[in-house]
């Protein structure tokens, strides 16, 4: 069974091709890691999976992306409903310029999941706990989200994405600004979440990829070089390029 399948996906920023012939099949209830050097197209590929690139002017997609066997780029697809199912944590954390509470509550409100006041507050607390942020912000829920630290903002964005309970969670370097303790909490969260979610995570941290993921995809210059079980990628990759990268002998 396959949750997300890309078929010969090409992506263009204007005239430059950022992704070349990507074909990959992501399984449900596993964690898939995307690794590769900076600029190789990890974020671009991740953002084609919830059609976030639609709003970047001058971009173009070729090929297909199937989620639950339905092409998300087919004409007539409800992009709003798609993004509701495919949540995203961005590479640069982007909290709304509102209170911490409102940041998490927003997704619930617009999706009619808010319920009563206490239900809403409960969901917000649960999401903040999952993202390992509750203890640090529980006394200042109604203060501005821009007034907390960068790492806290990153976890707030994770909480925000979790609150609406997507089926698929795309995380673009969710732990890049976190200390080891918070990082560990997020990794534990990812481990817990995979029972119910399909998770794709972009990371530059090889140990993290090895720790949290079941499958790993190695990208290089807009191509998918190798995609396999994580233990295989890290111990016995098929490609020399992959081996050089994961062992740090790159360049």
């Amino acid at each position: 069974m396959i949750k997300v399948r890309a078929e010969r996906l090409n992506f263009y920023y204007g005239a430059t091709r950022a992704l070349q012939d990507i074909s990959v099949a992501v399984q449900p209830n596993v964690v898939t890691a995307f690794i590769g050097p900076s600029g190789c197209g990890k974020s671009t590929f991740l953002r084609t999976l919830n059609r976030m690139n639609d709003i970047v002017p001058g971009t173009r997609v070729e090929g297909r992306v199937l989620i639950d066997d339905a092409d998300i780029y087919a004409p007539g697809v409800d992009v709003v409903a798609l993004r509701r199912r495919v949540g995203m944590v961005f590479q640069k954390s982007n909290p709304f310029p509102k209170s911490i509470f409102e940041n998490v509550a927003y997704g619930l409100r617009i999706n009619n999941m808010a319920g009563s006041r206490s239900e809403l507050a409960g969901r917000v607390e649960e999401s903040l706990r999952q993202a390992a942020l509750w203890g640090e912000v529980k006394d200042r829920l109604h203060e501005s989200a821009l007034a907390i630290s960068g790492g806290q903002q990153q976890r707030l964005c994770i909480a925000r994405a979790l609150a609406v309970r997507p089926e698929i969670l795309l995380m673009d370097e969710p732990a890049s600004a976190l200390d080891p303790i918070a990082t560990q909490r997020i990794e534990e969260l990812i481990y817990d979440l995979k029972q119910a979610y399909t998770i794709v995570i972009v990371t530059h941290n090889m140990q993290q990829a090895a720790r949290v993921s079941d499958y790993t995809a190695f990208f290089w210059l807009g191509r998918l070089v190798e995609y396999d079980r994580t233990d295989k990628i890290f111990t016995n990759p098929a490609e020399q390029l992959t081996e050089d990268y994961v062992t740090g002998r790159f360049g």
């Binding site: 709003i55 993004r83 961005f90 927003y106």
Partner: peptide, 12 residues
């Protein structure tokens, strides 16, 4: 980034 954050949550 603010618009993207909103769209990513399924906002119209």
């Amino acid at each position: 980034s603010i618009r993207e954050g909103s769209y990513a949550l399924g906002a119209t």
